[in-house]
Amino acid sequence: MQYFQSVFSKFRGRNRQRTAGMALGLPATPFTFMAHLLGIAGVVLVLVWNINFRGGLAWESSNKTLIFNIHPVLMVIGLIIIGGEAIISYKSIPLKKEVKKLIHLVLHAIALILGIIGIYTAFKFHNESGIANLYSLHSWLGIGVISLYAIQWIYGFVIFFYPGGSGSLKRESLPWHVFLGLFVYVLAVGTAALGFLEKLTFLESSGLEKYGTEAFLVNFTAIITILFGAFVVLSALSQAPSDDDYAPI
């Protein structure tokens, strides 16, 4: 009986180590490299769409569409791309653990701030255009995502950064922090995909050519966004270049 308890204890210890980044047993470097490339492509595409095809960005304008254009730009660049880079920072940056922890925290804070501003611009556009708020699945999920993202960041700050929890609390919280972080991020990517679909549907119902250049650009931007999210998740579940320097506690 003691023998089986000892084996189980060793298995549980190894299993906890794997939750820190070795679930796939594959090196993270190729996945992080692809995520960086897709992230750059996503930034370029969303800017080209909203500046070249949608007329640009403006905080105040008689053309209210220019106000709305800020929304997809900040949500994609902020919550999706910078948020994704924050997740894989432990795997992609060859620095000490404490430095990577700070980078992880700051990037998520930037993503959260840009996300909040991006959501505000959607409300601003609706209010100034006489359009109802929070009537679509995309908007409901968006509020849920930004709320969960904020809760996740605050919890991570308090437990893993300042004032910091005890060693046992950090160890017990880490698997849940990683799981919930990936869950919220995947939900954010899915919400972004719904947003692209919703916007393109509105544009096409207003006369945009279904097989035109802009329609293809929007769909392709959505695909790049989804692929970027997939490679972020693969990176997060893969083996860090240095196992001993990975654990974010």
Rank of each mutant, 00 (worst) to 15 (best):
S9P: 01
S9R: 11
G13M: 02
A20R: 11
L24A: 08
G25E: 07
F31Y: 15
T32W: 11
M34S: 14
H36S: 03
L37T: 12
L37S: 11
G39K: 04
V43E: 03
N50K: 02
F53Y: 13
G56F: 00
S62E: 13
L66R: 13
H71I: 02
H71A: 10
V73I: 11
G83Y: 04
G84K: 09
E85Y: 10
I88K: 02
S92P: 04
K96Q: 12
L102N: 09
I103Y: 04
I103N: 07
H104W: 08
L112S: 05
L112A: 10
G115R: 01
I116E: 01
T121W: 02
K124L: 14
N127H: 06
S129P: 02
I131K: 15
L134F: 12
S139F: 06
W140A: 05
L141I: 07
G142M: 11
I146L: 09
S147A: 15
S147W: 11
Y149A: 04
I151P: 03
Q152V: 10
W153C: 08
G164Q: 00
G165F: 06
L169C: 00
P175N: 02
F179T: 10
L180Y: 05
L182R: 06
F183T: 09
L187A: 15
A188G: 14
V189D: 06
G190P: 10
G190N: 12
A192R: 01
A193Y: 09
L194D: 06
F196K: 07
F196G: 12
E198T: 06
L200R: 10
T201A: 11
F202W: 14
F202N: 11
L203G: 01
E204W: 07
E204M: 13
S205C: 02
S206C: 10
E209P: 00
E209I: 11
T213E: 03
E214A: 12
F220H: 00
I223T: 10
I223D: 01
I224G: 06
I224Y: 03
A230N: 01
A230L: 15
S235L: 01
S235N: 05
L237S: 04
S238L: 02
S238P: 05
Q239I: 00
D244Q: 14
D244S: 14
D244H: 14
D245S: 13
P248D: 06
